[in-house]
Design a protein around this nucleic acid. Structure first.
Length: 834
RNA sequence: GCCCCCGUAGCCCAAUCGGCAGAGGCAACCGGCUUAAACCCGGUUCAGUGCGGGUUCGAUUCCCGCCGGGGGCACCA
């Protein structure tokens, strides 16, 4: 039975009363539990990116969940068994910072926020399956992070290495490459520095090609922007490795170049100052050179990442008093060390071709090194481009080879092929591919994260914690100083750190780093499928039934980080035989951000709009509707431009339709007013494809039209007792159930029915979609001169005749001879006079 | 510097094989209801699509070049 009988209602729309009526009802009935394997309906997995529980929900959440809910509720109405779960990405720095600054327990703080957010989500009428909630900070979740880590470790995909890492001096922790934005810490905007540390990595680079190539399969279902960003980020480039013999060194040095065709133009070599190679070559030189090198290295190390990133900065470097031999012409090339060559890309060394590379040219001019053009480059008019040595502008385009021995006269493509083949034959080089993408640094020197399940044993080395000893739970915070100090706070938990080796039972210590929280979110979509499973991270049969995610919804802020990592995990799991698909998210919708007066909302800007205030003032439905109606979902919404009051007014208007209906639920719609029925069925028909195309703003506009038409039918048409009016009002309730759950449920109850969310999409009567006449536009020379009402199936010939017979057309033609007549029956005729 | 997206009424936005520039809303104004106001109801005003070319019988739509806004990458050899 329904919660309250509509007769007791006041005669006007009161969103507070309506919310109070239905919220407890839904809490009790849990209408959005996903059905089990016995259910015959096709499945649909709709997933919203799970939130970080940093406080209560804000306007951004409200937008994201409103849009995700439209999709989830739509597929439910279409007869699908929908899985729409929610959880919390609950490890991370805010909890730890609250612990430090306010002395709060991170667990308690986190759980309190989760409870608050959950209450708000329920009020917001999110159609989540509340039986599947998960939170990544709970041991029953992060246990499987650890389990997965050990599987990756077994396969060599999780490894530890010493290297220069990004370091945030404020958070006192390392950062992944992806978390450094413009040389600043993504979280706190502190300039990032470099530090040499022994850290854990996931070998994402092993998957670089697949991560790049499989983007093609997402072409039609992911925003092109996100695909472009991922392509950019992976940054695959093809070229060649070339081996240069070094005087006084046994082993040659490999360099990587994308332009082997310019090999004859190499006039010096540059090694990265912070590479092992640079140090080694400097060491071979005399004390004076060494000293210069050391001083330069120190200077480079001390400069911030921002300085280093500035491309306008003058080039700097040190000559190492060493020489390389160009394999194609035997020339001696001086070797320099500089910071413009990166240690961790390619081989940390380059051949410099100043004539045809701007960076090399800048360096050559600064250090007074020779420049030799080996390409004859021309502009569009065939004029020779100025000599780079004179102009200071490198010619980086294509050109005909010159000064290149027997390669002279070739074009770029021919020369690259020829020289690569020759080097390969001589064993001095080979075709090669490089990536901008680096391995994913996952260790963090912080407390609130998943402990890395590794034990360090003097005898056995790194030993993975066996499955039966997982989870390695975080020690309590009591007695731990969580203040960032550069080493993990877990190191101070002596009892926790001290352990025995799982392999030899000897004394051992636990690894004290915790995992990047992006590990947590890389596979959570699989945990939702069997959140209570205790003998594995997820159930394979459930995965086969639901996964991959059919529709993922979230902000574009995660276009690179989270989505790339989740894709990597999925591919790794695929290779372990745990899932049978290679991409986690079949379709992706990025919603925009909610702004105020043209800029992001923030307390400091003083333009913060509080969600709870908006909900109190306008009601949940009006806010949800406003989010959907504001514009295309991927566009940003400026709250100053939209009208939640207007949405509330519209909902009241829709609600009154149901109130005014005078027929009973068994009324036969087919006997109703045909004109109104046509509008109803046309709307239902069009809205389906509009929702599937994420054109939610247009859907809302169409519902508004239907409401207007129904109102007119009641007030000045066939009247409130006509069955078509009931049919229309019911269609409005069902359509509105995607956007305004409370209002539509109340309408549905007034219409004498129960549970609008499961009402089902009404069958569209195709015969009502055919119009009996169409307005045909008749143009003379492209200008509209007349309109004709014609049958939709009129022939071209009849239509042309009708058009020519029109007095208005004859007047417009004014006796002129006719050159052509274009007929597009039944909508248009265009007559073109001579 | 390279790449991607977007410019339609005062504002948010429609116009989906190139075919009547306006579906919906906000704001403004007028009228009805009201003792009055709000609510509600009805109605009206407002752009020729950033600019310049091109293709076409016909361009908001396709092509080229600019201008303006947003975003990504950027010393990655």
């Amino acid at each position: 039975m329904t919660a309250a009988s509509p007769e007791t209602d006041e005669n006007r729309y009161d969103f507070r009363a309506i919310e109070e009526r239905w919220l407890p009802e839904w809490r009790r009935t849990q209408p959005f539990r996903a059905a089990g394997p016995d259910d015959e309906r096709p499945t649909k997995y709709v997933l919203d990116m799970f939130p970080y529980p940093s406080g209560d929900l804000h306007m951004g959440h409200a937008e994201a969940y409103a849009l995700g809910d439209v999709i989830a509720r739509y597929w439910t109405q279409r007869g699908f068994n929908v899985l729409h779960p929610i959880g919390w990405d609950s490890f991370g720095l805010p909890a730890e910072n609250a612990a430090i600054t306010r002395g709060l327990d991170p667990r308690g703080w986190t759980e309190d926020n989760i409870a608050q957010q959950r209450t708000s989500m329920e009020r917001y009428a999110c159609s989540f399956d509340w039986d599947r909630v998960l939170a990544t900070h709970r041991p029953d979740y992060y246990r499987w992070n650890q389990w997965l880590f050990t599987r990756l470790h077994e396969r060599g995909l999780a490894y530890r290495k010493h290297s220069n890492v990004n370091w945030c001096p404020k958070d006192q922790t390392v950062l992944a490459n992806e978390q450094v934005v413009g040389g600043l810490c993504e979280r706190c905007d502190t300039p990032v520095t470099k530090k040499k540390l022994n850290q854990w990595y996931f070998k994402v680079t092993d998957y670089a090609d697949r991560l790049l190539d499989d983007l093609d399969t997402l072409q039609d279902t992911w925003p092109s922007k996100v695909i472009a960003m991922q392509r950019n980020w992976i940054g695959r480039s093809t070229g060649a490795d070339v081996a240069f013999r070094i005087e006084g060194r046994d082993e040659p040095i490999d360099i990587y170049t994308t332009r082997p065709d310019t090999l004859f133009g190499a006039t010096f070599m540059v090694v990265a100052v912070d590479s092992d190679l640079g140090a080694e070559i400097a060491q071979r030189a005399d004390a004076g050179v060494q000293q210069q090198f050391d001083a330069y290295l120190e200077q480079v190390r001390g400069s911030s990442e921002i300085d280093r990133l500035s491309t306008e900065r003058p080039k700097s470097g040190v000559f190492l008093d060493a020489y390389a031999i160009n394999p194609v012409n035997g020339e001696r090339l001086p070797i320099w060390a500089s910071d413009y060559v990166l240690a961790d890309y390619g081989h940390g060394a380059i051949m410099a071709v100043p004539a045809h590379d701007q960076r090399d040219l800048d360096f050559a001019r600064a250090m007074d090194l020779p420049v030799r053009a080996v390409l004859d480059c021309r502009d569009e008019d065939g004029e020779a481009l100025p000599d780079p040595a004179e102009s200071g502008v490198a010619t980086t385009g294509d050109g005909t080879l010159i000064n290149s021995g027997d390669l002279d006269g070739m074009d770029k493509v021919q020369a690259i092929a020829a020289i690569t083949a020759r080097l390969d034959a001589d064993g001095r080089g080979r075709a090669s591919t490089n990536y901008r993408l680096r391995d994913w640094l996952i260790s963090r020197q912080r407390y609130w994260g998943t402990p890395i399940p590794i034990v360090h044993c003097e005898a056995c080395g790194e030993v993975a914690v066996p499955d039966d000893q997982l989870p390695v739970e975080l020690p309590p915070t009591e007695g731990l100083d969580l203040t960032p100090k550069g080493t993990s706070p877990l190191g101070a938990a002596t009892d926790w750190v001290t352990t025995t080796c799982p392999r030899c039972d000897g004394p051992a210590t636990r690894d004290t780093d915790t995992m990047d929280t992006f590990v947590d979110s890389s596979w959570y979509f699989l945990r939702f499928l069997s959140p209570g499973k205790t003998d594995g991270p997820f159930d394979s049969s459930e995965a086969a039934r639901w996964a991959p995610v059919d529709q993922y919804v979230g902000g574009v802020t995660h276009a690179i980080l989270h989505l790339l990592y989740a894709r990597f995990f999925t591919k790794a799991l695929h290779d372990m035989g745990m899932v049978d698909f290679e991409e986690p998210f079949s379709a992706l919708l990025n919603q925009g951000m909610v702004q105020m007066d043209g800029s992001a909302m923030s307390k400091s800007r003083g333009n913060l709009v509080r969600l709870s205030d908006q909900l109190d003032e306008f009601g949940v439905d009006a806010i949800r509707l406003t989010m959907a109606f504001a514009g295309p979902p991927e566009d940003d919404i400026d709250w100053a431009d939209v009208s939640p009051a207007g949405s509330a007014k519209f909902l009241a208007r829709a609600w009154r339709l149901a109130r005014d209906v005078e027929s009973t639920p068994d009324a036969d719609a087919s006997t109703g007013d045909v004109a109104l029925r046509a509008v109803t069925h046309r709307t239902l028909h069009d809205c389906a494809s509009l929702v599937e195309g994420f054109r939610f703003n247009v859907v809302v506009a169409r519902i508004m039209e239907l409401v207007n038409a129904t109102r007119k039918a009641i007030d000045s048409g066939p009247g409130a007792a006509d069955p078509a009016v009931r049919e229309a009002a019911e269609a409005v309730a069902i359509l509105l159930s995607l956007f305004a759950p409370y209002c539509s449920e109340d309408m549905w109850a007034m219409l004498g029915r129960d549970n609008v969310a499961r009402a089902g999409w009404p069958a569209v009567d195709e015969s009502l979609l055919v119009e009996d006449t169409v307005t045909c536009v008749v143009q003379v020379k492209g200008k509209v001169r007349d309109r004709l009402e014609v049958a939709p199936d009129i022939s071209d010939g009849d239509l042309e005749a009708a058009a020519m017979a029109s007095p208005a057309i004859q007047r417009a033609l004014d006796g002129a001879a006719i050159r052509t007549v274009i007929v597009r029956a039944p909508k248009l005729v265009n007559i073109v006079p001579v």
